[in-house]
Design a protein around this nucleic acid. Structure first.
Lengths: 109, 109
DNA sequence: CAGTAGTAGTATGTCAGACGTAGTAAAGAC
DNA sequence: GTCTTTACTACGTCTGACATACTACTACTG
């Protein structure tokens, strides 16, 4: 078992992305690199998963997007977390604690 | 937030059910009661989710089913975990530990 | 100077798991 | 004699993740 299967992390991709937007705006490629790095290569988010998460979260009002020309002259789509996104993130964190507690009753080490 | 949303636990329903079959054979209704009780009402599995998990796991060779007439004279479908099911369960437990480690990097308390 | 790797995405369609709704049927509770 | 609990089955829908493919520009590499 090299990495993490998608169904396990399902429902937490949004949370992970929002976490990375808490302190500064960011864009797809950078976020995917951050996830890979922070998880020590244990989780590499798929591009399509990432970008569809952005679309969904923008629709839900958790993030806002804007275009910016980066230092290298290339256009990038940046994402900014909204207040609603921050609330959602914190709610998901509480939910995670609850889930963890429940699941661990059924795990044998 | 009363309970746990389905997408969070997704991918762990099979594991939870297999855990409850580790020590003795059981059937749908009993398993659903056990989950509710062990999670202190924090997680109540939907009937359709439970029974479709049985079907899937039987197809995958993780459980075996047989009909039995219970004390009360009613017919019940019992499920028994297989060796493959036990292996799968242990693999999911290891996966859970890994997932937990990864997700917690992105959770703020 | 061509080819490859990295950066930064978009488009389209498929699949699996969870769930909503509904229905069946028999036993026990009030 | 109706309501609740027990014990399922059938069918259709939705969502998130993913496979595949494509665009386009930059940097490096031999």
């Amino acid at each position: 078992m090299a990495g993490i299967s998608s169904d396990v992390i399902r429902g937490y991709n949004d949370t992970i992305i929002l976490f990375l937007l808490m302190d500064q705006d960011s864009y797809g490629y950078e976020i995917s690199k951050s996830i890979k790095q922070m998880s020590k290569d244990k989780y590499v988010i798929k591009e399509t998963t990432l970008y569809s998460a952005f679309t969904r979260m923008e629709k839900n009002g958790y993030v806002r997007s804007y275009s910016k020309i980066a230092e290298n002259g290339k256009r990038r789509t940046y994402y900014q977390i909204t207040n609603l996104g921050r609330e959602y993130y914190l709610e998901k964190c509480r939910e995670w604690e609850l889930t963890k507690e429940v699941v661990e009753h059924f795990i044998r080490n």
